[in-house]
Design a protein around this nucleic acid. Structure first.
Lengths: 358, 358
DNA sequence: AACGTCTATGAAAAAGTTTTCTGCAAAACC
DNA sequence: GGTTTTGCAGAAAACTTTTTCATAGACGTT
């Protein structure tokens, strides 16, 4: 049931907010020239006051600072970056921002880069490599300081542009065989390999696999490979009919469950490449009257908020999004300064979190 | 239980990725000058080829396009925007990116603005108005085309800078009494007013309120007001001991539930200002052995993924994040062109979604 | 007193585009 | 057939800052 409301049309108890009080003395354009005039110096000294205040006489600095405050001066970063031949901008391209998969990562990158004086720009490729290419080229036009990309399945042109840019490039959420630059990630292969092994260790057999079905998704491919190898090592054949893909939604997870169970009623566990699918499957089991984990075990990947909320709670693989974000930001920072000395690939690992569903 | 794994140290089955193949003929700096030389024109014509191709002779255009392709030219947006005296950048400041509260909104704004040729920049204020002010001033330096802000509780300085910038300013997720510019939002007051009324209609009395406890959160304040008015209209007194705040986490939701129930065991329903809290409360009820909604009813706000996954499923208020995002982006687009003709405040409304918890 | 060094400031060039203005040839007009 | 318009392209200025180079004076040393 769902009641619709447009809210009251009369502005009932409108949201309060402080009235604006004019603080600044000047309207119209205010650049370094205007500040300089007011402070009786040249714009050169104004520039210095901002970037190397210790090179400016205290009294002069005071006058300049006062002028800036009074006139509400905001330095033009466009001009500054153009002149300095580099900008603090750091593009970060992720497949999606809507799902909470990457949201911890995004927030941490954002906060950490901002604190370090950079300006992150987030782009959303929608799991589409061509779109990612378009975004990258667009971002390259801003003369960024570094580039952060998700995954390893960039188009050749994307790779070329990265290489030719001469910028620090960081790939994340993966462990590529041929990295573009530095890497902060984990092994998608190993993740599914380990969780499948774990399922086997807990006594489950005939393990299926549910994955995110987007074109050119190297992370899904790696996860599938991990599942296949583990299944084979367990003495079974990783039947492709026991694996099924779907888009990123709860419904797709339910579909996958029904599909695999329909083709192979003897399936005792399904390892999903995403918590979203896994949760969808758990809910579908309830609808179908299947007991978890007795009739079938379910595992996910990501340890998103959902997984500890669903009942039964989800056994999953925790990906340390915040750590990845912080690590990426630090790496950008040090790479730009040129003092990065750590390994070119940082494996942040993952953690199997056993709950009730397996 | 939780097993820790760093993944295999040997790069087991490293993630595959295409090898880079050199596509471009030239390394080193390639600007319009270089393209111009190669195409036997001046950089002026190159500039025209990019922005007004119909003003360039077909044959000339062909030569220029070919040169760009061969040399992998990326126009310098810094220079372009500086010269054109405005940039396609549009800052969007939200309180948090980590929670999925705003993630639909963010993705939709990102996609829609990108398609319209803008470059959104997302900043995260962490529910801190001073930090928001800092971010805004930093972003203003990029000479943006417009500004999108969440909420109505900006500092006076923030408001001044917005006003003085002369830019289109859009506030969202609220319906401010004194808007800075245009608004795309809904009434936070009405949201809690309506859901509380609904609870009363469903027969619940002694209704409590749980809210997000961050300093200067106008949205929480408005929601609380809505609860108070509705409770009073229902003939009860909105006791401040029946309201409790907490940070944005499941645990805080559980705390709030215990707190309110501890002080007022006769409480028959709690309306939460956030799904996160509400879900935390639902889980806590299960731990405490309380039946929902028989012993106590719970409602949330936001209709995040969590709310339809928890058991019992959550009655909540759906906020149309994607719609808000699209509307904001369209408004930016039209405002910048100067052809926006719609109302200066768009109320997207909300929708009460009744599920099992009330 | 001559010299070198250091500090505080300024003048001019540079960054890579777009804007504005100008020029020229060919087409269109009457 | 001369004039106006149109289509295409170039030259120079502008955008606002940083970089680079220069200079004037203070101070210390020999």
């Amino acid at each position: 049931m769902s009641l619709r409301s447009q809210g009251s049309k009369r502005r009932a108890a409108p949201e309060s907010s402080a009235q604006t009080s004019p603080t600044f003395q000047q309207d119209g354009k205010v650049g370094m020239k205007e500040i300089a005039e007011r402070a009786k110096v040249t714009k050169m000294t104004v520039s210095r006051a901002l970037r190397t205040p210790d090179k400016v006489a205290p009294e002069t600095l005071r006058r300049i600072t006062a002028a800036m405050e009074e006139m509400g001066f905001v330095p033009n970063s466009l001009a500054g970056s153009l002149s300095a031949r580099n900008s603090p901008i750091v593009p970060v391209i992720v497949p999606t921002m809507a799902n909470s998969i990457f949201s911890d990562f995004i927030e941490e990158v954002s906060l950490t880069l901002d604190r370090a004086g950079f300006t992150p720009i987030f782009g959303c490729s929608n799991f589409d490599n061509e779109y990612e290419e378009r975004l990258l080229i667009k971002y390259l036009g801003w003369q960024p300081s570094a580039i952060i990309l998700t995954g390893a399945s960039q188009t050749p042109r994307t790779r070329d542009f990265c290489q030719r840019s001469g910028l620090p490039v960081i790939q994340t959420w993966c462990l590529p065989e041929h990295p573009l630059g530095r890497v902060v990630g984990f092994s998608n292969y190993d993740m599914l390999y380990q969780i499948t092994k774990a399922l086997q260790g807990w006594g489950y057999r005939n393990i299926g696999f549910g994955f995110l079905n987007t074109p050119n998704n190297d992370r899904s491919r790696q996860r599938r490979l991990g599942w296949e190898v583990a299944v084979r090592e367990g003495g079974d054949e990783p039947l492709h009919t026991r694996a099924q893909g779907g888009e990123l939604s709860l419904e797709a997870g339910a579909d996958i469950l029904r599909g695999i169970l329909g083709r192979h009623p003897d399936t005792k566990a399904i390892a999903f490449g995403s918590d979203v699918h896994a949760v969808g499957a758990v809910l579908e089991c309830k609808r179908l009257g299947l007991r978890i984990p007795d009739d079938i075990a379910i595992t996910g990947c990501g340890d998103m908020g959902l997984s500890s909320v669903v009942s039964p709670t989800l056994t999953t693989v925790r990906i340390p999004g915040r750590t990845i974000g912080r690590e990426c930001a630090t790496m950008v920072n040090l790479s730009v300064v040129g003092t990065y000395a750590g390994p070119s690939t940082v494996n942040v690992g993952f953690e199997i979190v056993r709950r009730e569903s397996a």
